[in-house]
């Protein structure tokens, strides 16, 4: 009988790379469609992408704007905070990837995919594709609100687009961290809890909301190394004008570093779990 082949525990399953690239793309397409249908079925899940930028912008500009800008006026603060919020938008969306992955693992859906001739990575890739789209929608809403309340672009349209692109790329790299968290924790709620713990200091201990020069020394040095500060500074320079190179390079370096470290970890964790 052909059952006579013995296989030790060290043998690995046949490489998944053998799924032809076109089939792989088709699978990613089908799974992307699934994630889009999920949003359609549950429109409230878009609320964080659409409403958050509106609420945050109005809140910060009108509640803190006068105080923080130190007499510079609300208009000046719009141009300060908006690129910062753009940088921060990716964080909240990236968090949703973590809870989404966690939910898939908790229900039987993942098992279903794993018993089909589908590369496991296509599930993750589809999620990232859809969430990146959500990030872009969120950023577009943010810019619209900004223009309505007096955001003025000191540079040119391509620079604004570059700022959007930079925020998106950085946000996508964060998704890997949240995938890792999503795979490591038991429930979606705990994922959210841990994510907030990580995000809060990152968000507020940065140049997103207020200039670091106004902070105590220890905090100022923390913000100097906070990647979110680099991104906020880069977006600000791209939209308002000013020296761009340093902050953009720093942001790209952070993006690359985060991806290189966490993506393989997340994928490995995913493989181990699946």
């Amino acid at each position: 009988m052909s059952a006579a082949t013995t296989t030790g525990p060290t043998a690995r399953p046949a490489a998944e790379g053998r799924i032809p690239p076109r089939a792989h793309l088709r699978h990613i397409g089908a799974l992307t469609r699934r994630n889009l249908l999920q949003i359609k079925q549950d429109p409230q899940s878009m609320a964080d992408a659409v409403l958050m930028p509106i609420v945050l912008t109005l809140l910060f500009v009108y509640v803190f704007g006068g105080a923080i800008s130190g007499g510079g006026g609300v208009d000046a603060y719009v141009n300060y905070i908006l690129p910062g919020l753009m940088a921060m938008g990716g964080l909240n969306i990236a968090m949703a990837v973590g809870t989404g992955v966690n939910t898939d693992m908790a229900t039987g859906v993942m098992d279903r995919f794993r018993t089909m001739p589908v590369a496991r990575s296509s599930v993750l890739i589809a999620k990232i594709v859809v969430e990146t789209g959500r990030m872009l929608v969120s950023t577009a809403v943010l810019l619209c609100v900004g223009f309505l309340i007096g955001l003025s672009v000191g540079t040119s349209a391509p620079n604004v687009l570059a700022a959007v692109a930079l925020s998106t790329v950085f946000g996508a790299s964060l998704m890997w961290i949240f995938i890792l968290i999503g795979l490591s924790l038991k429930t979606a709620q705990s994922v959210q809890g841990v994510a907030f713990l990580v995000l809060m200091p990152l968000q507020f201990g940065s140049s997103v909301f207020a200039p670091p020069e106004t902070m105590p020394g220890w905090l100022e040095s923390f913000t100097a190394y906070n990647p979110l500060s680099s991104l906020a500074d880069a977006a600000r320079a791209l939209i308002n004008g000013g020296p761009v190179a340093d902050s953009v390079w720093k942001t790209l370096a952070w993006t690359a570093a985060i991806t290189v470290v966490t993506a393989p970890l997340a994928v490995r964790k995913f493989r181990d779990k699946t």
Partner: peptide, 18 residues
């Protein structure tokens, strides 16, 4: 092991595509 947010038809279609 079906997606609760999708309709029955969409679930089956998705699996067919996969």
């Amino acid at each position: 092991s079906v997606d609760e947010k999708l309709s029955g038809r969409e679930n089956l279609y998705m699996i067919g595509r996969l």
